[in-house]
């Protein structure tokens, strides 16, 4: 007899990794690394109209030590690149990165001597959000994709173990 049948509807069985992931994905603490216009769009995403807290990610942190989601919003130039890398390194594992907007993803239309052609030249990126700037819905979609990814990572882990 399975555990479920024995205990009836009083318990839910799951795997520990999946339960931890469930907690993590619904309580992301983002660090908004806003360097340009895209950051303004993020303010809209946090505000009550779009309300990022519906996804549990409203607790914006400005210390990398306390954040697990790095949101890069804006143009990153070469002088900025080592600072971004240092911030990423200071975040504790597990951590995820969203490159929001054309600039963070690919340098955008700044194809010149000063601008990094996408932050993936210096740090790993989990989700790229297109747009210049991306609408709040797009940023929210990016966060949902991160949630999906966290969930899948846990499932993968379960399979290996």
């Amino acid at each position: 007899m399975g555990l479920k049948e024995l205990l009836g509807g009083t318990v839910v069985t799951t795997k520990l990794a999946e339960m931890v992931a469930w907690g993590r994905k619904n309580s992301l603490w983002p660090l908004p690394y806003g360097t340009a216009c895209c950051a303004i769009e993020f303010m809209g995403t946090v505000s009550s109209v779009f309300d990022i807290s519906r996804f549990g990610a409203e607790l914006v942190r400005f210390s990398p030590r306390q954040a697990d989601l790095l949101l890069v919003l804006g143009t990153i130039n070469y002088k900025q690149a080592p600072i971004l890398k240092r911030i990423y390194e200071q975040m504790c594992e597990p951590k995820w990165v969203i490159a929001a907007g054309a600039c963070a993803s690919s340098g955008g239309f700044y194809n010149n001597y000063a601008v990094l052609q996408g932050i993936d030249e210096v740090i790993p990126v989990d989700v790229y959000v297109p747009g210049c700037p991306p609408r709040p819905e797009a940023i929210l979609n990016g966060i949902m994709m991160i949630q999906k990814k966290i969930e899948n990572q846990a499932k993968e882990m379960g399979r290996v173990a």
């Binding site: 070469y78 002088k79 080592p82 890398k85 194809n111 001597y113 000063a114 990094l116 210096v122």
Partner: peptide, 28 residues
């Protein structure tokens, strides 16, 4: 002021090669 230390050349001179990129500076 605006470019990282170690940048070679001066990009607003007209003979600076267009599209020339330089090494990404390492974190201090």
């Amino acid at each position: 002021l605006l470019l990282p230390d170690g940048f070679e050349g001066h990009p607003l001179r007209k003979d600076y090669p267009m599209g020339k990129r330089q090494k990404i500076p390492v974190p201090v």
